[in-house]
Design a protein around this nucleic acid. Structure first.
Lengths: 253, 253
DNA sequence: CCAAAAGTGTTGCCTTTACACCCATGT
DNA sequence: ACATGGGTGTAAAGGCAACACTTTTGG
């Protein structure tokens, strides 16, 4: 399935800079939504190292966007990921505690300073197959509320991504990327409430969402749950794309 | 006054990468406001080359923000510039028409691919002393409406900056950086109209601005002009800073 | 039959928009 | 005096927030 993940071998350490740009990296904040909680995908470095954001380097003939897409594909197995660049982090001491995993790394391009371009991604939780990279031996979802201390400035990057996500709630109907094809109105509402971190009135929310005229109510209802069965909805791709161009004023925030 | 501008000499071409990060540059879109027109500061490359945005490189121990500040200081003479990072441009072919100014450049780090971090700045037009850099022999303001074709993707960068500026009109009262200390309400309105590219109702604008409670009306009036003399205003720094923290809802756009 | 969740509609407030009148100044 | 631009207030409209009642379902 596409790319081969390079191994952290001597060749990569000594000649990586012939393949990748020096001093430039890409980090991704991958958001998912599951069981009414906003999740983020993290990696754990080998040898019981710290947790970190998935990231990687930019090939010499590759765009930043392509690099981010490639890296996130490698971690999630997904194509067609909704990606948004949000900030570039370039403090000279952002990696001050940079550690050598092995002796080969001394003097390597990898030990030099990196400026990292942050992208956030919105993915459908259930479709992701988390996969560690060459530097890590674990890859899994974390609840946004209980993210551990991350390496370098990665907590900072995560917080910036979250702020950018909140900001973009006004311009983009986030649900399209984060929810499964069919979903209920309460599920969509939980998503918004989770991202915004505050409750929203049930009835006003429904009115506003339906008012956008991008949702289709299906005949079916969600079965199995207790209490009254909610309707299922899906996005109307035609109307959704049209509205994307014209912008929409969903004045949350 | 501070930095010495390096000359485009053999030493810079051959050893610049020991001082600066490879593949990373910073470009600035410097906005000013004069005679009811939004202006942008551009440089013209030597030997009758194309116009471009002011930019430069990042020292190995310098943050992106510091680099942008340094570069913009060199072009404008200003300290304490309001700077905002807005996007990072990393298409591999963004500099496809890269030209060698002289034969020393062959194989130089300068001829390699650069990812550039875009910052926009808001400055007070009258305080700027435009100064060319080592690659250019002219530096002057251009009306935003009549910007010429720029080198590489610099028109693209400028357009992104303008979009980011419009966006931030809602969160930040731009006037503080772009206008002189004392200004009239019509002047402030022209600024908003120019950035938004559309007219605003005179009375509603005044109501909204005064409603923010960050302006102080002075006893003086603007003299010299024809017709009724408008009041002069200045920002109330105390209230301005307080409002900055809390955010304000000036629902333009 | 009761608790808990979902579906729907109405009201009032507040923000935004539209618009009219008077005042000051240079020609 | 008149044309042009500046200062102020008011009324209508539209969007948003607050809120109550009914329906469905499992226990």
């Amino acid at each position: 399935m596409g790319e081969q993940i390079p191994a952290l071998d001597s060749d990569f350490l000594k000649k990586g800079h012939e393949v990748y740009l020096r001093h430039v990296s890409v980090d991704g904040v991958i958001f998912g939504f599951h069981e009414n909680e906003l999740k983020v995908l993290l990696l754990k470095w080998k040898n019981n190292g710290p947790w970190c954001l998935p990231g990687g380097f930019v090939r010499r003939e590759e765009s930043l966007q392509k690099a981010a897409t490639r890296i996130l594909h490698e971690r999630t197995g997904l194509h067609d990921i909704f990606l948004q660049q949000f900030h570039t982090f370039g403090e000279p001491d952002r990696e001050k505690k940079k550690t050598q995993i092995n002796s080969n790394m001394a003097g390597s391009w990898l030990m030099e300073r990196f400026v990292t371009v942050g992208y956030y991604a919105l993915v459908e939780y259930s479709k992701v197959k988390p996969a560690p990279d060459m530097l890590s031996d674990e890859c899994r979802w974390w609840d946004i509320q209980s993210v551990p201390a991350l390496v370098y400035d990665h907590n900072d990057i995560l917080n910036h991504a979250l702020a950018a996500l909140r900001q973009s709630l006004n311009d983009h109907p986030i649900g399209y990327s984060l929810l499964p094809e069919k979903f209920t109105m309460p599920e969509l509402q939980r998503l918004y409430e989770t991202i915004l971190g505050r409750p929203i009135d049930r009835r006003n929310f429904q009115k506003k969402m339906l008012g956008l005229d991008i949702l289709v109510r299906l005949k079916e209802r969600k079965t199995g749950g207790a209490h009254k069965a909610p309707y299922l909805y899906r996005f109307d791709k035609r109307k959704y794309d049209r509205a994307l161009k014209e912008g929409w004023g969903l004045g949350f925030v």
